[in-house]
Amino acid sequence: MLEYYGRECWLKLPGCTKVATTKDHINPHTHGGSDRLENFRPACHRCNSKRQERKVGNQVRIITGPPAAGKSTYIKEHAYPNDVVVDLDRIAKALMPDPEDAKLQTYPDHIRHVAIGARQAAISRATRLRENVGIWIIHSVPSPDQLEEYKRMGWQIIPIDPGERVVRDRIANQRSSSMHDVADRWYDKPSSGESSPLIEPSRDWGIA
Rank of each mutant, 00 (worst) to 15 (best):
I75D: 07
K76D: 12
K76C: 01
E77G: 00
E77P: 00
E77D: 12
E77R: 05
H78M: 01
A79H: 06
A79Y: 05
Y80Q: 11
Y80D: 13
Y80R: 05
Y80W: 05
P81G: 02
P81W: 02
P81V: 03
P81E: 07
N82A: 04
N82P: 00
D83L: 01
D83S: 01
D83G: 03
V84T: 12
V85Y: 09
V85F: 10
V85W: 11
V85M: 04
V86Q: 06
V86N: 07
V86Y: 05
V86W: 05
V86F: 00
V86T: 05
V86R: 05
L88W: 13
D89K: 08
R90M: 13
R90K: 14
R90L: 13
I91H: 10
I91E: 06
I91G: 07
I91Y: 06
I91W: 04
A92N: 11
A92Y: 14
A92E: 14
K93M: 12
K93G: 10
K93R: 15
A94T: 15
A94Y: 14
A94S: 15
A94G: 15
A94H: 14
L95H: 12
L95N: 13
L95S: 13
L95I: 11
L95D: 11
L95G: 11
L95C: 09
L95P: 14
L95T: 13
M96L: 15
P97H: 03
P97I: 03
D98P: 11
D98F: 11
D98W: 08
P99C: 08
P99Y: 12
P99A: 06
E100T: 10
D101W: 14
D101V: 10
A102N: 13
A102L: 10
A102H: 11
K103W: 07
K103S: 12
K103G: 03
K103N: 13
K103Q: 10
K103C: 05
L104I: 12
L104Y: 14
Q105W: 04
Q105Y: 09
Q105K: 07
T106D: 11
T106Q: 11
P108Y: 03
P108F: 00
D109E: 13
H110K: 08
H110F: 09
H110S: 14
H110R: 09
H110P: 04
I111Y: 09
I111S: 02
I111M: 02
I111N: 03
I111F: 03
R112L: 02
R112T: 13
R112I: 05
R112G: 08
